[in-house]
Design a binder for these strands. Structure first.
Lengths: 238, 238
DNA sequence: CTACAATTCGAACGTTCGTTAGAATTATGC
DNA sequence: GCATAATTCTAACGAACGTTCGAATTGTAG
């Protein structure tokens, strides 16, 4: 949960830079902030952003109320750090997994699989991202919105590629938003004790989205060729 | 927005029944409560349940803070009344629209269309229903959950019918929840100035869900027969 | 008009909220 | 060990929260 940020107090009056700044990556400061962000994610996830109090977070971290404010300047910034980091990472990982995959259908399937894998691996953070979608105001909100738009754009282009390559006809906007609905809604229902893992869910949702419920037989027929292709892609990206 | 409820104060010490209770349907009391619920829906929609204050609601209704409490006993009960009423109505309307439609595919399409029509006709209330899904605790939460389970069960049975009738193979749970994702997510994106109306959206989402993106041509081929069938159903139910 | 019920209100209750000032403590470089 | 920077704390701030009390006002039946 590493997020770029710097200490606020470097000598209470003069703002001096830390001499020999220790790599920032895993400085004590950074590690503590990460720990706080992790607890904040949990608290926001359970009580909601508005419903969670700084005192809840103080209890969860075992740190005093004032002590927390050494690491950030407002509750809103906490949410911003969580959302920005989570969203940046999912886009980053998507980009990595897409390199080397050229078949348009497989690229859509990679998108779905990446989303669900990230979602289930960081379920709490992704719930906070999805559920507190419009909780941030002004500057912070705008910055997260930029990443969101980028993510949307990538998905839209994947579907447009598929459309062009296969000569299909569908409304891209509706398709993108339907797909986002399918894969984001998971935060309301997924139960690790009942439901399949991310790869299986991705396959199932990909089948529904691409082939539809009513083409199960067709899916069956195509599946051996698809699986071969899939194995090739997985070697390249996993 | 009519919801069953009764005045709290009928003589401050003895709880007498109102003589000749005026039909309850559109008594002054009921009309005022409905007005409050409508404003509360708007306020909860914009600020979120936790983020909305009773003072926001006081401002929105033009009624004093204390005056509001003549009509209900807590903020939580307000949310409960909104959710229960909204959810009951959508189930009710679904039942009506399903009677007389026997083709399993068309029954699924009726479900989707009913959901989206109700959603867009009561967008604010549905957002409050979807977004404040787990905001209610204990008794109130349990009661709304009962209706939710019933709605889920109906959808599940529609898909099971389709599966049996067409000899298809898919995981019903995953299909139901994917469908719910598609049709509920709409509250995060629908813009009446850009997007189609409920019937068109329902057709598009139904096509994706049932036929898949990649069977646009097949959809085309089947479409004339489908449209004829669809027209028949609509005469029966609209 | 009178009497009484229904409705609305101003003013406050006690609590919790996000945030901060300033002192106390801990780690670090010499 | 001494000085200085980094970290954490106790205690409180003013504002906003959901809710209630008791009085004032309004509608209504006789």
């Amino acid at each position: 949960m590493q997020v770029a940020a710097k200490p606020r107090l470097l000598g209470s009056s003069q703002a001096r830079a830390r001499k020999l700044a220790p790599a920032a990556e895993d400085s004590r400061y950074q590690r503590q902030l990460d720990k706080i962000l992790e607890h904040a994610t949990e608290v926001f996830c359970v009580r909601g952003y508005e419903g969670a109090s700084m005192r809840d977070l103080s209890r969860a971290t075992g740190m005093s109320l004032a002590g927390l404010y050494y690491y950030f300047d407002s509750k809103e910034k906490l949410l911003y750090l969580i959302q920005k980091h989570t969203f940046s990472r999912i886009v980053e990982q998507l980009r990595e997994k897409l390199t080397g995959v050229s078949d348009p259908e497989q690229r859509v399937r990679v998108f779905i699989r990446n989303h669900l894998e990230y979602f289930l691996a960081h379920q709490k953070a992704m719930k906070v991202l999805s559920h507190e979608d419009d909780a941030l105001k002004n500057g912070y909100g705008a910055e997260v919105l930029t990443i969101k738009r980028e993510y949307y754009r990538i998905c839209r282009e994947l579907l447009d590629q598929l459309k062009r390559a296969s000569g299909l006809q569908f409304e891209t906007r509706l398709a993108v938003l339907s797909l986002f609905g399918m894969i984001n809604w998971i935060y309301t229902w997924h139960n690790p004790r009942v439901d399949a893992d991310a790869a299986a869910l991705a396959r199932g949702m990909g089948d529904i989205f691409l082939c539809g419920l009513m083409n199960a037989e067709e899916k069956q027929r195509k599946s051996s060729a698809q699986r071969a292709q899939r194995r090739t892609e997985e070697k390249q990206n996993l």
